[in-house]
């Protein structure tokens, strides 16, 4: 083990560069999957005939597949049908497809947990269905969903490391490049990388816990 060689300034900078890509990809994917997750969850909740059935099949299929397979698919297989994506776009697409279905399940069960009586009460007070959903049901449900949603975000941040298989220049990829130089760097580098992921994720989980105490 060679801690001094492994922690040379150029290596640290190289790792931080990788981490910034990890955080960027995670941030974009979180934002997009949040939007799509709510859309899919709400559409399934409202039980619009055909659409909600199709979405059910979509969600059941995607959430039962490994994310790694979806990443391979978006990067290697989509070009075969004419959809070319660079590494970054392929990784983000795969993450959004996968995580938005996971989030949609959280949203749907959150919505289902709101008593039906509230809908009736709101409707009888003159609001239409969409208004009821938007002003009454969704805000309450979202509040209950905060902890599971945050933990899904943590999963997403961790899952960005799967993009190492398509050599997306994120943290894991940069760590492996350094490890390739000298096998004695492996343990020190992995310790540092673990601490980087841990710090950000732990902070996120602390935020989640505070929110939990606040709202529930």
């Amino acid at each position: 083990m060679d801690f001094i060689g492994a922690y040379s300034p150029s290596h640290i900078i190289f790792l931080l560069k990788g981490f910034s890509v990890t955080l960027l990809v995670a941030f974009i994917s979180i934002t997009l999957s949040f939007i799509f997750g709510i859309m899919i969850g709400v559409l399934r909740y409202t039980k619009v005939p055909v659409i909600s059935h199709l979405l059910a099949v979509w969600v059941e299929t995607i959430r039962n597949l490994p994310l790694l397979l979806i990443i391979f698919f978006t990067f290697f297989a989509l070009p075969e049908i004419g959809l070319k994506l660079d590494k970054m776009a392929a990784a983000i697409l795969a993450l959004v497809v996968f995580e938005s279905t996971m989030l949609s399940e959280i949203v749907r069960s959150g919505l289902n947990s709101i008593e039906k009586g509230q809908i009736e009460a709101a409707r009888s007070s003159g609001l239409n269905y969409l208004q009821t959903l938007w002003y009454i049901i969704l805000p309450q449900a979202l509040r209950r969903m905060v902890p599971p949603i945050v933990s899904q975000f943590i999963s997403l941040l961790k899952d960005t490391s799967f993009a190492v298989v398509i050599s997306l220049p994120e943290l894991m990829n940069h760590a492996q490049i350094i490890n390739g130089k000298n096998i004695n760097y492996v343990i020190p580098i992995f310790i540092l990388v673990a601490l980087m992921y841990f710090t950000v994720n732990y902070l996120l989980s602390l935020v989640s816990r505070r929110l939990e105490n606040k709202y529930i």
């Binding site: 083990m1 943590i154 961790k158 899952d159 960005t160 490391s161 799967f162 190492v164 894991m172 492996q176 490890n179 096998i183 004695n184 492996v186 343990i187 992995f190 990388v193 673990a194 992921y197 841990f198 994720n201 732990y202 989980s205």
Partner: peptide, 17 residues
């Protein structure tokens, strides 16, 4: 709070050290 990929890499690359 750390990725599975990292843990698996540790088990694969680190034991030789």
């Amino acid at each position: 709070n750390i990725p599975l990929m990292l843990i698996v890499f540790v088990f694969f690359f680190a034991p030789s050290a």
